[in-house]
Amino acid sequence: MTDFTPFLSFAGGLMIGLSAVALMVVHGRIAGINGILGGFLSVRLNSDWAWRGAFLAGMIASPFIVLLATGRFPEITVPSSPLLLVIGGFLIGIGTTIGSGCTSGHGVCGMSRLSVRSITATVTFMTTAGITVYVTRHVLGG
């Protein structure tokens, strides 16, 4: 079980939205984490490398801000086995690259622009994620 946290989750969502808007206002860019990571890892050096790297570094440093603000690190529980993490991670990398986006890029940025592609993508990955959890927990009994 995990606690129902509507207020904290809503507050976190507001912060994610603020960051996405700020990145658009200042840099003119979509806050799609898959796209930022993919662009950062691109073989060819490009002018976008620096801001992408800085954005990712800020994300990685964020647990320490949470520590400063709340006195403890955020609670992270990883229920999946290492094998499932590797398979899952590999599918995430393939899927977000071929599908041009993830929860942030399609789900937040694209949907808020009422992009039909992003709405379609979001409905698709939410559905397959739900089916996957149902199968692993209730059919296979993981």
Partner: peptide
């Protein structure tokens, strides 16, 4: 778009991570 997103969702459901959740 649809195939890639479907595959991403399976990975999300197996691991519990999406890229934005994972990096921090």
């Amino acid at each position: 778009l649809i195939g890639g997103s479907a595959v991403f969702g399976i990975g999300w459901g197996l691991s519990g991570f999406c890229p934005g959740g994972l990096i921090p």
